[in-house]
Amino acid sequence: MMRLPWFEFRAPSSVAEAARILAAEGPDAMPIAGGTDLLPNMKRRHQTPRTLVSLRRIESLKKVSNGAGLTLGAGLTLTEVIHEPKAQPYGALRQAAAQVATVHLRNMGTLGGNLCLDTRCTYYNQNYEWRKAIDFCLKKDGGICWVATASKRCVAMSSTDCAPALIAIGAKAKLVSATDERELALESLYNNDGIEYLKRRPDEILTEIRLPPAAGWRSTYWKLRRRGAFDFPVLGVAAAARFAKDGTVEEARIALGAVASRPFLVPKAAEALVGKKLTDDVIAEAATLAASRAKPMDNADLDLYWRKQVAADFVGYALRELRGDDMRGTRLRIARQIL
């Protein structure tokens, strides 16, 4: 049986208390919410925090509130997000959350946890013994990135489904520490670096996600993975657009996930839609523009050239769905479930 290393366990009941513990303990302390990402990593000795600060008892992290838009507590489980009536207008988020891992893991894992998901790589997400056999890697305990041996930067892949969806929606993230709090566009939470992939400081807690009003917008998320469950994305495409009554795109955002160390927007592709109706030609042009930014590496499932090749198809699926095409058959074949 794979077991966790020893740690001290703390279970504060407020964000303030949790932030105080994190500040006092320093980087040896880590917050834990659902645990579905951190605990496997700890079992494999990727992270061996001296102190675990559980966020599970903090009621305020479960809050859902309307205002100008929608605020979702980072501690909501993915299942709660999927079933949250107020989140229904945000199609991309619901589709992304519904395709994370499995039923069980969505009952455990939180929205905040998915956004802070450690980057992934087939040289990294391995047991301690396996990593020893390759003399470790740049991301953890070693000196070489085995994916790109000349690279000074770790190229582990951002594997969150919810982040590209929320970035396309235009969400903001709130970070709270013992000394301050700040809000930033979700896209700016991430660095394109497999190791320092988050701008969150170790003493900060991601507390909530603010979504702008959904009125007039349509959004969607398409995920490429091998199986209908369990698998992390090897490509995530999120698209959101605001349409005029005649179908002309007034504003749009396209975000890609799982093709770099961070999820990111492709403004050029979105701009190619603005002021136009989503004809096949317009979709094809935007899809090509978006796909050109996909830089998959040989560190995840499925052939990397093929992953690159089908990126445009997936952007096309997303845009056609926004246009109003009936994509249920395609989605059923790709996602293997009714979403």
Binding site: T36, V103, H104, L105
Partner: peptide
């Protein structure tokens, strides 16, 4: 998988202390 408060969860990733 076991049920925690009626929901299926994976007992291998649930801290017993919680």
């Amino acid at each position: 998988a076991v049920l925690v408060d009626g929901e299926p969860q994976l007992s291998c990733l649930v801290l017993a202390v919680e």
